[in-house]
Design a protein around this nucleic acid. Structure first.
Lengths: 235, 235
DNA sequence: CTCAGGCTGTCAACACTGTAGATCTACAGT
DNA sequence: ACTGTAGATCTACAGTGTTGACAGCCTGAG
């Protein structure tokens, strides 16, 4: 793609480091080795540069992690066209889930990083989905405030669902018995009868279906609850 | 409270270290200084013991963090008596929120730690709420599987709500203007008109009310969605 | 009583972490 | 040609989790 005629350094990599490239390789490392696998030194080595170079492009490691979360969240697309708001929200939910499954190791960052930064000071990329959803909803008749509430409910549920699904994901494929595969065998039968009984259900967890069901519940609840008040659009 | 006649060591603290005491002071540290403020050495110092002592009671720092999450979650009470399931769930939601607000620094641990451990191998204390809610729901007529779905929906939403609320919590009290206090002033007016316009609403965030509204939506959606199928209870 | 074994606590050491400070290089503008 | 500046590199420091060897105590067996 990029092959500059002049090479300004001994390095085999092309050109000076950009924030983009840093975040990209950082994402690779995190995707592969988890968050704890990312250290400045390792990142530097992966970029074939001295680790200290990174501090020219980010003040902190924390800032770098923020950037990572932003970068991943940037891939979330929100259709702000004026279609059916319900299906649009559903599409957002699916997109978010897709994102989370593509980068499971980043999800803790995604849901946790914003805790450290006040809303207004967050990277713009992080706020884009919020603004998009607000426009999407207000366009179809929601109050600003109601739109905000819907956003909160949706992302509240999304965060939670994704965390739940990622938990459920851990398995031990070598075992065939559900109880064993899930590690439930160890639970005292007397104290956890229901949980143990649910082994087969737990074993056949379907995240996509679970999400759809959740969104169903949410949308049903939303239309039912918001009906009293302003002009909430139908269907 | 405790003043043993015989002192078995030079230390001013009483008796040998217990896992309980470790987790307790660890919780204090985390509540005060955040998760990053907790190191084995600091914890050791707080307990007036050599840091290495801790490894007699926990194999890892990770295990210690797990224990912390478990300890906090243990405070969640679930009324498994046969009352109105909806209000019972609502009470669980309130309890969880109370917990999160009491130990905001632990919340990331709470929602994130289980990701590393398969469900069945998690500390029993962590699974207790799940089992309790299952009994609570099945007792009132839900299918096992449906009860599980309800649990998932509820805690999905709870996790998300709590994360959202804690984000919203950050403020800067020195400012009086909402835009400034939230740091929204910096946002380009052209790109984030709605978000900026919502400053007053954002500034007057009421977590409790937001939770209630969320639970309203959830319960409304649940009763509406689960109605087709088995015998879902009324009310 | 003596002795072994197992907890609990302590110490020193290792490999690593994030990052401050100084230094070096190379290019841009006057 | 000189300077300013931004990027990159090096060194060094304080702090991290954890391993392995060692000392003391308590308990139970012989």
């Amino acid at each position: 793609m990029a092959d500059e005629p002049e090479r300004r350094s001994i390095h085999s990599d092309d050109g000076p480091i950009t924030r983009e490239r840093i975040l990209e390789t950082a994402l690779e490392i995190v995707d592969r080795d988890g968050i704890d696998g990312l250290s400045m030194r390792r990142l530097g080595k992966a970029l074939d540069r001295d680790p200290m170079t990174l501090y020219r492009h980010a003040p902190n490691k924390a800032a770098l992690l923020d950037g990572l979360a932003e970068r991943v969240l940037d891939e979330l697309e929100v259709d702000t066209g004026d279609g059916d708001w319900a299906t649009q929200l559903r599409e957002v939910a699916r997109g978010f889930r897709r994102l989370a499954l593509a980068h499971p190791q980043v999800v803790p960052l995604l849901v946790t990083r914003p805790l450290s930064t006040p809303l207004g000071l967050r990277p713009l990329g992080t706020l884009r989905p919020l603004e998009d959803i607000l426009t999407l909803l207000t366009r179809t008749g929601f109050t600003d405030a109601d739109a905000l509430h819907v956003y909160r409910a949706l992302f509240g549920f999304l965060y939670g669902h994704v965390l739940n699904e990622l938990q459920e994901l851990v398995e031990r494929p070598e075992e065939s018995d559900d109880l064993l595969r899930l590690g439930l065998h160890r639970l005292p039968i007397g104290e956890f009868p229901l949980l143990r009984g649910l082994a087969p259900v737990l074993a056949s967890y379907d995240g996509a279906a679970e999400l759809e069901r959740g969104v169903d519940i949410l949308l049903a609840g939303l239309t039912a609850t918001l009906k009293r008040g302003d002009s909430s659009p139908p269907e």
